[in-house]
Structure formats: structure tokens, C-alpha cells
Amino acid sequence: MRVVGFIGPSGTGKSHRATWVAKERGIDFIIDDGILIRGNRIVAGRSAKREATKIASVKCALFQSDDHAYDVKRAIELYKPSAMLILGTSEGMVEKIASRLEVGPINEKVFITDVASEFEINQARSTRMQQGKHVIPVPTFEIKKDFSGYFLDPLQIFKRKGKGSYQLVGEKSVVRPTFSYLGKYTISDYTVYQIIEHVVSKIEGVSRISRFRAENHPDGIYIEMDLILIYGYVIRPLLRKVQQDVGEEVEKLTALNIKALNLVAKSLVIDPQKVKSKMEN
């Protein structure tokens, strides 16, 4: 296997340029911050951006956990890549990763200064220091399932086709890990309940929520609800609408991944307004 190391200090824009460097050298596989990427998909590993501290993030990026290293090595054996790009903050780091994953020696080394100007590097450093932003070289939909509770920004890359014309050529993701800014935030179950209660109150055919339970896990939130429905509405389509509207609003407002949203139609009530209308007619 041909192994290329892409080297540069933290925050200088390596992840942003990784796909370009790989494409120029005919490489389809990238190792970046603990994950194995093939094209625009994560195929193995776990992102160091999810770690709670910088030290834990470095350990993850170096594959110091045997289980983590084994997971990626097994994927490499499965896909049998002819070439691989490994990102690291130093020559020693990319060599340690290559050794840990048993992919052989580094055949070529590319430095960030070879592909980015001093101005671009300083701009990337400023963004990292001031805003705590980190780039992951895959589309947002690829990592959203692993970043429940993190606010992710898609970074779309365009290529000029002609005067005033651009073509979308790829997408990366911007994430602000816990260790890169001011602490950790949490969203209480009651806040989630209030959001859901507001959404449900606007859905015609639902009277109220009679029971609510939420469990927040690292991969996302699991929700159970019992609903009191209004007599006269078809139940299955109504519950599907509740799932769809609640799911969209909770994910938009909290960035939490909804792993399960289980609904039970507990009972029916008569809408007094409808009864009054029928009596008047």
C-alpha cells in the first residue's frame, strides 16, 4: 500500500484540504482524527472531535485504544486500499498512526505549506482560535448520527464553471467540539417536552400529551409519548404526522438526533366545539 502523510500544525486547514490532496494523488482513503474515510463516507473508526478533552482527542487520533485500532484495521483489510492519506500534526504523528494501523511506512510526505499560502494558514488558525471550529472532510449527513447535541454546519465547496456559474463539487462539515470552546452544554428533558408540547398543540386531532418520557444517550434521544386524540380523526396518519412534525422541530432546535419516537394513542375525547356545532345545526 502507498501511504502518504499530510502534515501540519493543528488548526492550519489540513482537514479542509485533505480531499484535494488525496484526489491529486489518486487516493480514495483518508485517515483523519480517528476515522477512516472512503470518498465522502466514514467506513470505520470514531471521531476525535467527540472527545471531552484535548488529551482524550489526541489519544483517539492516535488510535491508542485497541478496540478502536482493531475496528479500523479490519476495515482496511476488507477494502484493501491501494493508497491512503494520513493526516497528522507532525511527521512523528503520521508515522505512529501508520505503525498503529499496520499499513506500512510513509512513502511520501506533504506539508500544509506545500498546498496553502501563509495567508490561508493564518486565516485558518484565526478561525480555530477565535471560534473553535473544526472541519471534518465528509458531508454533514455522514456524521450527524454520531454528533447528537453538537451544532453542525455544512461547508459546501463550489468550482467555477464559467462567468457567474458554479458547480457543487463536494461538502465538508464544521463542528465545534466540547474541548474547543467554553465547556459543555446540555438540554434538559423538560425543555424537549416543552418544544414537543408546543408542536403537538398545533396539530389538529391531538388533544394533549398524557405521558412523556425521554432518555438522552450519546448517540441521540429516545422518546416515548402517550397521546389523547380527538374522536373522528384517522389514527395512523395522525400519529405519523406527529412523528414527522416533532422529529423535524426537535432536531432543528436542539441538534439532538431522535433515535426513536414511540407514540401510543391512549384514549379518545370528544371535541366539545364539534358537538356544539352539530347541536346548533
Rank of each mutant, 00 (worst) to 15 (best):
Y181I: 03
A83T: 07
E120I: 05
Q123G: 04
P137I: 05
T127S: 10
D114W: 09
R160D: 03
L62F: 08
Y150W: 10
A83H: 08
L256M: 02
A265I: 02
S126W: 11
I223E: 06
M129L: 15
G5W: 03
K96G: 04
P237Q: 05
Y231F: 07
I203M: 08
G232S: 06
V103R: 07
F6R: 09
Y231T: 02
D189W: 02
G11Y: 11
R2K: 15
L101R: 12
L261K: 06
L152P: 00
I31Q: 03
S165V: 14
E171P: 01
I157K: 12
K274L: 13
P154N: 04
V94I: 11
K241R: 15
F158R: 10
L227A: 05
V269C: 05
G13K: 08
E197G: 09
K278W: 12
Y190M: 07
R160Q: 14
D146T: 00
I195E: 03
A48P: 07
K59R: 15
I112Q: 12
L78P: 00
L78K: 14
D153P: 00
R46E: 10
T12M: 13
T178L: 10
K172G: 01
I143A: 00
Q64T: 09
F111S: 08
S173I: 01
V21Y: 11
S99H: 13
A61H: 13
T178H: 05
R25A: 07
K80Y: 03
